[in-house]
Nucleic acid binder design. Structure first.
Lengths: 231, 231
DNA sequence: CCAAAAGTGTTTCTCATACACCCATGC
DNA sequence: GCATGGGTGTATGAGAAACACTTTTGG
């Protein structure tokens, strides 16, 4: 209706998850990169990577762009999390943030740069964040753990082929509890989410493990179809 | 960064669901109200109720407001569906739409007004809609059917107390398939979602049925907590 | 009494869990 | 050989589905 400057700004932020070994016991845990704010409000505090939505880019494009800018990575999985738009969530201005969550491969995440203003944190011990970003991270973690149990996103943390042990390790890291190897195998094989290849992975001081790869992607978001990810 | 007029507009739309008897066979089916567009683009076509986000209202508030404006009802259940923001979804301007979905009580929906520019449609036979609203309705229906199976939103279609037959009728209407009364009873009673009252509903030419009411609301959206609804 | 829906009991099947056990490799 | 993880077999129990059966009302 009003033709003058709209007072509502649109931003896109992304919660980026990767698995990395914990510094304490070496077991794999969930990590995410945060950026330090260099402007008010909340200058100096850690926050989710993101920025204003450009007029000529789609929402998911914007999420992938800021993801690449902060980590130099491309996501294996990218899905919209939620739109946060309460009037009081940013002091002094009205910002609606469309938040995405992404999974990146663990081997690539090792290459990801850190700097004075970009640092990876263990998901269980993120500091108090700017805006409502602490709540957002908590919600994204909840979604990740939830979706892992009825979807096949775990493979997004791994390479093209992987052993069932590696896949199980992903589940254990995300869910933070040990899983029975025998039952896990049956569950996964029975679900048809992965298919065995001809190759084996040798090198451990034990019997070689068969390598698997993703089956054709299964629709999991209904009419919205497949969410973006590696082609 | 730029201080001049932001070219990205924010709107809030709502998919409103109610159950009404089908005109063909009288069985309950899912319905939703649509409004006729009185402006370009897509003038004359049917679209979801909604409008621009006001600077001083929260997202859910905006959804509830447009819901009240078009149907004169208050939602029993209101939850964010998705944010749609592709660059090409509205010709000539850039609009990001935060879409909510709502459930209203069937007895109240009967009172809801219709007019030249507001009409209720059966969910299975909505016409081609303006913008990407056809896709949005399809997705909202998918979410409704999905969520019905692991949540207790069905009671939002009913009054404060209801019989298990009425609750089953809701499930059957939404899922479009008959359910075994005996097993349905056990499932619902075992879930703890409802509690029996002392009252019975008489009047049918058969044994009176016990009335139930909602149990204390269970968290189903994780850290985001309870979604808005009747207090 | 009969029709119809309320409500209970029981059988069967599927699937998750727990755990015993064999297989194949490095050292 | 022996330690280690890969992989198979199997008993048990919980819960879903199918369906027979009893109960209580209106007519």
């Amino acid at each position: 209706m009003a033709a003058h400057a709209a007072p509502v700004h649109v931003a896109v932020s992304t919660v980026i998850f990767a698995l990395r070994p914990s510094p304490v016991d070496g077991r794999m845990t969930v990590w995410l990169p945060l950026v330090r704010r260099i402007r008010d409000p909340f200058v100096g505090m850690w926050a989710l990577p993101g920025g204003p939505l450009e007029p000529d880019e789609d929402l998911a494009e914007s999420a992938a762009r800021t993801l690449a800018e902060t980590t130099l990575l491309t996501p294996q999985y990218l899905e919209q999390l939620y739109a946060f738009g309460n009037t009081d969530r940013s002091p002094g201005e009205r910002v609606v943030s469309i938040v995405y969550w992404a999974l990146v491969r663990s081997d690539e995440a090792d290459i990801a740069v850190e700097s004075e203003n970009v640092r990876w944190f263990e998901a269980d011990s993120v500091p108090e964040l700017a805006f409502d970003h602490s709540l957002i991270v908590e919600y994204a973690l909840w979604r990740l753990r939830n979706k892992l149990e009825y979807s096949h996103i775990a493979s997004a943390f791994l390479g093209d082929t992987f052993t069932l042990s590696e896949l199980r390790e992903v589940h254990e890291a995300v869910l933070q509890k040990p899983l029975d190897p025998a039952n896990f195998r049956r569950q996964i094989e029975g679900s048809g989410q992965v298919v065995p290849t001809e190759q084996l992975r040798t090198g451990g001081r034990h019997r070689p493990a068969r390598l698997y790869r993703y089956a054709a992607t299964v629709e999991t978001n209904g009419p919205l179809g497949r969410t973006e990810g590696a082609s």
